[in-house]
Design a protein around this nucleic acid. Structure first.
Lengths: 203, 203
DNA sequence: GAGGGCGCTGGACTACTGTCCAGGCCGGCC
DNA sequence: GGCCGGCCTGGACAGTAGTCCAGCGCCCTC
C-alpha cells in the first residue's frame, strides 16, 4: 500500500470515467497532477487555506485552470488528495512484537500524526477538505479510513478485538477532527491517543 | 443550560456586535429568528442539504434575504444554530445513581443522538454545517462541545476521571462525525458508544 | 516529413454567495 | 396628530466557483 509509479488522482470512480481522466495516467498527466498537488501545498503554506483556489494553484503550477479542473473537482478534492498521497507514501514504523499492543498502536498513530505535524496551516486545510461533501472527497476519505484501520489492526496484532479496533478508530477520528479544528495542537494528538490506547488496552 | 426566553442567534460575539444584532433580541426579532430556524428544518426535509440556501429559507420563512443575512452569516451558521437550539431545549434523561457509570454515559449519549436520529437528511446537514470554517459556526461548535462535556462529566459522577472523559469526548466526536458522514446510521451511534464506554469504564 | 491524437489553453458563461444601501412600514412617544 | 426609531424590504452589486468548447502545439508513428 505504498506509492505506485503513476497514480491517478482519486477521482471520478463513482461515475466511472465521466471525463478524460482515466485510471492510468500518461507520464505527462501524472506530472501535471504532481505539479498541482505540490503547488497546492506551496499555496497553503504561502496564502493559507482561505487564499487557496483551484485557479491560484493552477497558476502556481503553470497550468491553465481548466486543466486543473480536469483532474480535481474542487480545492477540497485537491487538498484531500495531498493528504492521501502523503499517507500512501509514508513507510510506517516497523512493528515491534516485544512492545505492548498499546505502545504499537501509539506508534502507528504517531506516524499518521507526523504527516502534518509542524504545518498547522496544512493540517487545518487537510482536515477541512477531508470533511467536504464532494463525492470525490468522500471516496478519498473512505480510502484513508481503510488504510488507517488496517494500520491499527496490524498494530494490535494478537491483541486484536473488533470492539477495541472500533473504539480506537472512533477516538482517532475524533482526535484528528478536534486537532484539525484547532482545539489542541497536532503535537498533542499522539499523546492523547496514547492515553486512550492505555485505557482501552491496558498499559 | 436550557432554553432562554428570547435567545440571540449565536452570532457576532467574536467581533462583539458588529451588526445591528444585539445580545438580546426584541420579541419581534426573536420571532423572525425562530421562523428562520424552523424554515431551515423544513427546507432540509423538503429539498435536502444541497437545496438549502439562505435565500430559499428566507422565502419559506416569509422574510427578505437581507433580513436573514442580518441574523445568520451563512447556511452553515443557520443549520448549526438549529442543532444548538435543539440541544439546549432538550431535557436530558435524569441520572440514575443506582446504575453503572457506563450505563449513565450511554444514556447521556443516547439523548444527544436522539436529537437527530430518524432524520438522516437533517443529521447530515447538521454534521456538515457544524464543521464549517465560518467563525460564527466555530463559536456554536465550541458551545456544543462544552455542553456535551458537561453532560458526560455529570453522567460519570463519582467515576469521573480526566483521561476517561477525554477518551469519551474524542470517541463521541468521532462517532458523530462518522455517523454524519454516513458510515453508519445514527441509530447505531448509541450502541457503539455503549461499547466504548464499557471498554473504558468496565461494565 | 506528414498525419493524427492527446493533453493543454484561454476565455466565455452561468449560477450563486454574501454585502450594501436607500426606502418603506409600523410601532411607540411626546 | 406628528415625529421618530427600529426592523424589514427589495434590488443592485462584486467576487467566485465550476463548466464548457473550439483550437493549438507537441510528440509519436509511420
Amino acid at each position: 500500500m505504498s506509492s505506485t509509479p503513476t497514480r491517478a488522482p482519486s477521482s471520478g470512480a463513482t461515475t466511472e470515467a465521466r471525463a478524460p481522466v482515466r485510471r492510468h495516467l500518461s507520464e505527462r498527466q501524472a506530472d501535471t497532477v504532481a505539479r498541482l498537488t505540490d503547488a497546492a501545498v506551496a499555496e497553503v503554506r504561502g496564502a493559507g487555506y482561505d487564499g487557496l483556489t483551484v485557479r491560484n494553484v493552477a497558476r502556481r503550477a503553470g497550468v491553465a485552470p481548466a486543466t486543473a479542473y480536469t483532474y480535481f473537482a474542487s480545492k477540497d478534492h485537491l487538498v484531500a488528495e495531498v493528504f492521501w498521497r502523503r499517507l500512501q507514501d509514508q513507510v510506517p514504523t516497523p512493528l515491534d512484537g516485544r512492545r505492548s499492543a498499546s505502545a504499537r498502536v501509539t506508534t502507528a498513530i504517531a506516524d499518521i500524526a507526523d504527516l502534518i505535524t509542524g504545518e498547522p496551516e496544512l493540517a487545518a486545510a487537510c482536515t477541512t477538505s477531508l470533511l467536504a461533501g464532494d463525492p470525490d472527497v468522500a471516496r478519498i476519505r473512505e480510502q484513508i479510513g481503510i488504510e488507517m484501520a488496517a494500520r491499527l489492526r496490524a498494530a494490535l496484532g494478537a491483541a486484536f478485538d473488533a470492539d477495541v479496533l472500533d473504539a480506537l478508530s472512533l477516538a482517532l477520528s475524533g482526535a484528528m477532527l478536534q486537532a484539525g479544528m484547532g482545539y489542541f495542537p497536532h503535537a498533542e494528538l499522539a499523546d492523547r491517543m496514547a492515553t486512550v490506547a492505555r485505557l482501552v488496552l491496558g498499559p
